[in-house]
Amino acid sequence: MYKVSEFSALTGLSKETLRYYAQVGLLEPVFVDPANQYRYYDDGSYLLALLLAKLRGFGLTIHEMKTVMNDKSFDNLEKLLLKKKKNIESEIEELRSKVADIDEFIESGKERDK
């Protein structure tokens, strides 16, 4: 069993993030000592924490991560990730378009100065 500080160092998730994940029901400690309220995590928690960190890194919202965690079979994970990928690709195209618009605007300003 790992104390929250050890678990935080092990997973790379901050103590605040771990508290928040417990509060919203994403990753609850496996044991809370009734005497001092220390929270403890185990190896199973470690695997879930790594999954949550990866999902967060992919840009999933807390709601989306809860959906994944509530689906114990992870059947819908691929669909969710493919949808996220498509959204990211759309955002990239929008940003590329904005960059092209900025370049065009800058060039038009330079042409007027000539």
Rank of each mutant, 00 (worst) to 15 (best):
E104R: 10
I88C: 06
K110C: 05
S8F: 06
E89A: 12
E78G: 12
Q23D: 10
I106W: 02
V4N: 03
K114E: 10
K86R: 13
D101V: 05
N36L: 05
K79Q: 14
L48Q: 13
D75F: 13
Q23R: 11
L26F: 07
S8Y: 02
G109E: 09
D42W: 00
F105D: 04
G57Y: 10
T67S: 13
L51Q: 13
A53V: 03
V24Q: 04
E107G: 04
V30L: 09
V68E: 11
L60R: 14
V30I: 09
L18K: 07
F105R: 03
P29A: 08
E78M: 14
E107T: 02
M69G: 10
I62G: 08
M69E: 09
F105C: 00
L60I: 14
L50G: 00
M65C: 13
S5E: 03
L26E: 08
E91A: 02
L51Y: 07
E94G: 01
Y46S: 02
F105N: 06
E89V: 03
K110V: 09
L47V: 11
V68F: 12
S108E: 02
L50P: 01
Y41K: 08
E16R: 14
V4H: 04
D103E: 11
A35Y: 06
L48Y: 10
L82W: 11
